[in-house]
Simulated assay, not measured.
Amino acid sequence: MDNRKTASKAMRKAAGMAALAAAMALSACGSNGGNEGGSANGAAPSPSGSATAAPEASAPPAELAKVTQVTNWFAQPEHGGQYAALAKDFYKEAGLDMTIQSGGPGISSTQIVASGKAEFGMGQADEILLARQNGIPLVAIAATFQKNPQGIMYHKGKYKDVSELNGHKVYVGSGVAFWEYLKRAYKLDGVEEMKYTGSLANFVDDPDSATQMYVTSEPYTMEQQGVAVDSFLNYDLGYKQYGNVLYTTEDYLKKHPDRVKAYVEASVKGWNYYRDNAEEINLVMQKSNPDLKLEAMAFGTKALEPLVYGGDAETNGVGYMSKDIWEGLQRQLVEIGLLTEAEPIDGVFTNEFLPSP
């Protein structure tokens, strides 16, 4: 890493003949060719005059680079790989002193990363494109979800096609990019749009309504309340974007490519660990988010498995991103008027720092 310091070796002086002392000093200087954390041994005379092994002073530990990543919500299975990398010291082993800062209501990870208060962030693919248009030069460096878990939830058996939502209430955030696409693609001009507040009470009370959701969480909430639901996944409806994309700024990537590589590789290692050790890491995350029950985490873990480890990740590994997917999403955002132009997509994302599958 560019920030690691090469440890200097202190030469030991031995009592005795001047010639032997000089020889020891030369040996100590040349025995460690800059190996971090290593130690070299030189022969030092014992009080009786016989030679014994006398180890040099231990090198100080390499300095870790302090970095922060901001997630897009409170700790939950959607962040499992990041917390696994932290809990199992994968970041530390890669030379990073990592802090995970939870997102939440009113917290903009893009603004925090752009301001330099955090080096890495997590968000949706469309957020990266929209941020760049607004003068925030973010670069996607890994996509932890091959398929975004966002979708539309409705009461079980009510709808077979998303176009049937016309004439009914849909609880959705104002100006949400995926909803603007769905309205245009499926001619949802007859939908009664209702403000999404995070509460599902109104949805439960109206069997004809629908609401935005994450397939990894809201269906579990409904299951606990005895409400049977189905859902449309936005990705399957044509709005193909990556979810929980890891990103940094162009400037940070240019100045610290080694740290970016270390971060990406440790994160991917964390996601691979989480796949087989979710229960262990869920306990870790619950300490950061005690309001989330382990049963809900178990549901989320199962729901996210095909979204994280399926698709292109099966052959190219966790985090892989396709140029076709990025270009398709960019084109859709231009068509619905959220992007004014399509910039060269090669500057938007990179697979350069991903480990070999």
Rank of each mutant, 00 (worst) to 15 (best):
N41Y: 04
M98K: 06
P77D: 08
A185C: 03
K287S: 04
Q330V: 00
G104F: 05
Q332M: 02
W73E: 09
S46Q: 10
I152P: 08
A298K: 13
Y159P: 07
E36L: 15
K92E: 10
Q224K: 15
K195L: 14
V191F: 00
H79P: 08
A278C: 02
L233P: 07
E341S: 15
A53P: 06
E279W: 03
K187G: 11
A296W: 04
K9I: 14
E250T: 09
K13I: 07
P207Q: 04
L64G: 03
Q241I: 01
S217D: 11
V204E: 15
Q133A: 11
A57M: 11
P344N: 11
Q133T: 02
E56K: 01
N35V: 14
T221L: 10
N244C: 08
C29E: 15
A177Q: 07
K287H: 03
Y309R: 05
A57K: 13
M213P: 06
S288K: 12
A22Y: 04
T99Y: 04
K183L: 02
A114L: 01
A201R: 13
G226Q: 04
T110H: 04
A131G: 05
Y83L: 05
P77E: 07
Q101H: 09
K323H: 07
P45N: 06
G226I: 01
A7H: 08
L165T: 12
Y320A: 05
K293P: 10
F74Y: 13
A25P: 02
I107L: 09
Q332W: 00
S115G: 02
G198T: 05
N35S: 13
N244P: 01
G270F: 06
A28G: 11
A53T: 13
M213R: 07
G38R: 10
I325K: 09
G226V: 02
G347A: 00
Y242D: 04
A75W: 04
A296C: 04
R275G: 02
T211Q: 05
G328T: 08
S356R: 09
Y186F: 15
S217Q: 12
S31K: 10
A10S: 13
G38V: 06
G104S: 07
K169A: 15
V268Q: 00
V334K: 03
E119G: 02
V176F: 15
V229R: 03
S356T: 13
P47S: 12
Y154K: 08
P219A: 05
N316R: 09
P357H: 12
L339R: 01
T52Q: 12
N148P: 06
A143C: 00
K88D: 10
R331M: 01
G116I: 06
M153Y: 08
L307Y: 14
K5I: 14
A43W: 11
G135M: 11
A125V: 00
P355L: 06
N32C: 09
G243I: 06
N316A: 03
S231C: 12
D97H: 04
E341R: 14
S108G: 03
N282M: 09
P77T: 11
D312V: 13
L86W: 12
Q124S: 11
E218Y: 10
N134E: 10
A313Y: 01
A14G: 06
N272A: 07
F90D: 02
I141C: 02
I336E: 04
P105Q: 10
V245E: 01
N72F: 13
K323A: 12
P105Y: 09
A87D: 13
K255Q: 14
N277Q: 12
K261M: 05
F232L: 12
G175Q: 13
S322M: 08
S39C: 05
F145L: 14
N272K: 14
